[in-house]
Computed example of a mutant assay.
Amino acid sequence: MRARGRIVAVLAHLVGGALILAGSVLVWATVVPADAPSVELDGTTVAPALAPVALTLGALGLALTIASPIVARVLAILGVAVVGIGATHLAQRVATLGDTIADAASAATGVTTLDAASTTTAAPALAVVGLVLALASAVWAFVTAPHWQRRQAQQRFERAESGLAWDALDDGEDPTASGRADERGTHDR
């Protein structure tokens, strides 16, 4: 449970961020004016804040890989805040999607009052799924962080004595002093 808690939180943050990013770059709607070429509206045009939200959630997920339990809880709270910002932005943009489509059609044809046929895609739903997954991941990280194991690099290990001259040098001793000088003297004779 301990190692899996961190892994689940990190992967869910990364996958949620990837889904949001995919939803922010895919085509949301296609407008087909009568006497003009069709216009595709992607997520960066309709909801420009989703890409930074996605990248921030991915960075938070990567930060969870090295975070202590206390820092992980702080990152989880930041994750919830970022998801809230993204959800608010997405809801506002989806609510005004009809106006955005009409503005794009008017800009494509130069006519200010224009009714054009349009089709929408499921890209906003992909961003919603990513936001829900990121929110669940942040809550999971907050709940399970106290049970995460400390990183292996924080543990101390003692080395075994090998009896070599290098070990004596590491300990600050002169390996040629004392008993070793006597042994050398007997070998020279």
Results as ranks from 00 to 15, higher is better:
4 R>W: 13
5 G>A: 11
8 V>A: 12
8 V>Y: 07
8 V>F: 08
8 V>W: 08
10 V>A: 09
17 G>A: 13
18 A>Y: 06
19 L>F: 14
22 A>Y: 03
27 V>E: 13
27 V>W: 01
28 W>T: 04
30 T>W: 05
34 A>P: 10
34 A>G: 07
35 D>V: 12
35 D>K: 11
37 P>N: 09
43 G>Q: 04
44 T>I: 06
48 P>T: 03
49 A>C: 02
59 A>E: 04
60 L>Y: 04
61 G>F: 10
62 L>E: 02
63 A>Q: 12
69 P>Q: 05
72 A>N: 08
73 R>D: 10
76 A>G: 10
84 G>R: 06
85 I>L: 13
86 G>M: 05
86 G>I: 01
88 T>Y: 13
88 T>G: 15
89 H>E: 10
89 H>R: 08
91 A>N: 08
93 R>T: 07
98 G>S: 15
98 G>H: 07
98 G>Q: 14
101 I>Q: 07
101 I>K: 00
103 D>W: 03
107 A>D: 14
107 A>Q: 14
108 A>I: 10
109 T>C: 09
110 G>P: 11
110 G>T: 07
115 D>W: 01
119 T>W: 07
120 T>I: 04
121 T>Q: 09
122 A>V: 11
123 A>F: 03
123 A>V: 04
131 L>G: 05
132 V>K: 05
136 A>S: 10
138 A>P: 09
139 V>K: 04
142 F>D: 02
144 T>E: 14
144 T>D: 14
147 H>Q: 13
151 R>A: 13
151 R>F: 00
152 Q>F: 13
153 A>M: 11
158 E>S: 14
158 E>K: 14
161 E>C: 03
163 G>H: 11
165 A>V: 10
166 W>F: 07
167 D>L: 11
169 L>E: 15
169 L>Y: 09
170 D>K: 14
171 D>S: 15
173 E>Q: 14
173 E>I: 02
175 P>A: 10
175 P>K: 07
178 S>H: 14
181 A>I: 08
184 R>K: 14
188 D>I: 09
189 R>Y: 02
